[in-house]
């Protein structure tokens, strides 16, 4: 009877250990998934902020300075956010494409004053 009790105790402890380990693994996987989701959301937010900055600053740009402003946006502003921006002046109104190569996200909009 005593031996049987001891054997049961060992089995219970082993089972509790396995369950705890599995729980910890699951929790870790959930944390990983949450971290990924938050990171994606932050990158998407950055695209939205950059889009807002481009549209707001474009309001003060005159037609003859479009190119200088465009070079600044593509060469300085967008890289500051870790993003790529391309302005297509062949269309009217000009079309802006913001690219996030890392996350594979993209935003397109037109420069309408």
């Amino acid at each position: 009877m005593k031996k049987g009790f001891f054997g049961m105790l060992v089995i219970v402890i082993v089972i509790v250990g396995i369950m705890t380990f599995n729980y910890a693994q699951t929790k870790s996987a959930v944390n990983d998934a949450n971290a990924d989701a938050v990171a994606h959301e932050i990158r998407a937010d950055r695209i939205a902020v950059l889009r807002n900055v481009i549209l707001q600053s474009h309001r003060n740009v005159t037609q003859q300075n479009e190119l200088a402003w465009g070079i600044f946006v593509q060469g300085e502003l967008a890289p500051s956010y870790g993003l790529d921006a391309y302005i297509d002046y062949s269309k009217a109104p000009a079309k802006v494409v913001i690219l996030d190569e890392r996350e594979g996200m993209r935003s397109e909009f037109y420069l309408v004053n």
């Binding site: 402890i13 509790v16 705890t20 910890a24 971290a35 938050v38 937010d45 950055r46 939205a48 902020v49």
Partner: peptide
Amino acid sequence: AALVLSVVLMHNAASHPSTGGDLALERAGY
């Protein structure tokens, strides 16, 4: 021993590296 094992495993799961960003700060930044 089982309790110690549980606490160690739970602690490892809880101290998972952070996401490297904060959504509240992102909203405030916008």
